[in-house]
């Protein structure tokens, strides 16, 4: 009597495990031929995931090289496979992963660079939406201005980095800069990344500008945001910072 065949679900469990490097598949004829076939599926599967991660962390790869990046990708996949067939936004937790990936320990700026690659990806695929024009604010009564809540554009992403990752990231974005060494002052830096129009834009922010923008992101009033900015830098030229952020396209129109 034939042993009962596994049902489809059992087959898939066994195949998927074998695919991801676990217990080899059995019970389908010559093991060598089976393994030759599994290798093809395995190569394609890993390549698909790797290509998606490379596409989404291109600046990281540029800094560490393809070999190092590939090794990190395999370690990352070991912890978790893609869960969404749309690989456009695959690798959300790769920046966090780099934070405790041993070979990255001496590259203190790397998780920050990865976070910015992530922010770029999210900005790139975010909803289209109109942008707040400066002239619109000029039409508001001064007393009412500080009570306004400015909403961030749906594509906007803010990041504060404890390293000069923003400068390093900017220097390694296309168009490809000249290879070579650059002296970078070691300091904390903030960034805003958004896609207010057709292309993703990027801006480095001083602490006051960052805290002002972040307060707006949290839904605070413009008055509270100004206080947050002044707390970071008491002498900050906040009206200029605000004008820059509006000119950058960081905000949605007033509701």
């Amino acid at each position: 009597m034939r042993p009962s065949m596994p049902d489809l679900a059992q087959f898939q469990d066994a195949f998927a495990a074998a695919l991801r490097g676990g217990e080899p598949l059995r019970g389908h004829g010559d093991p060598a031929r089976l393994e030759a076939g599994m290798s093809v599926y395995r190569n394609t599967t890993f390549k698909g995931a790797l290509d998606a991660l490379r596409a989404n962390y291109s600046t990281v790869e540029r800094l560490v090289g393809t070999e190092w990046f590939t090794a990190s990708a395999y370690a990352f996949l070991d912890i978790g496979w893609p869960s969404d067939p749309s690989l456009v936004a695959f690798g959300e937790h790769y920046p966090d992963f780099l934070g405790f990936f041993e070979p990255a320990r001496s590259l203190a700026y790397l998780p920050g660079v990865a976070r910015l690659d992530r922010a770029w990806t999210e900005a790139h695929v975010a909803s289209d939406a109109p942008v707040l024009e400066a002239s619109r604010l000029a039409a508001i009564e001064p007393e009412a201005l500080l009570d306004l809540r400015l909403r961030l554009h749906p594509s906007a992403r803010l990041a504060w980095c404890r390293s000069p990752a923003p400068t390093i990231w900017r220097l390694n974005r296309p168009p490809a800069p000249e290879p070579g060494e650059v002296e970078i002052p070691w300091r904390e830096e903030g960034t805003a990344i958004a896609r207010p129009y057709a292309q993703v834009e990027f801006m480095i922010l001083d602490p006051a500008a960052f805290d002002l923008a972040d307060a707006c992101r949290r839904g605070e009033t413009l008055g509270q945001a100004v206080e947050a900015g002044l707390a970071a830098e008491p002498d900050a030229a906040l009206t200029r910072y605000l004008a820059d952020l509006i000119g950058f396209g960081l905000f949605q129109p007033l509701s």
Binding site: M5, D7, L8, F11, Q12, D13, F15, A16, L19, R20, Y41, T44, T45, K47, G48, A49, A52, W81, P82, S83, D84, P85, L87
Partner: peptide, 25 residues
Amino acid sequence: AWSAWGGNYHPDLLPFPRTEAALAR
């Protein structure tokens, strides 16, 4: 083919035994 299974998406097109039950599925 199948690709997504058990919360994982495998970027490939994977085979399966063509049973009557599989056809129904």
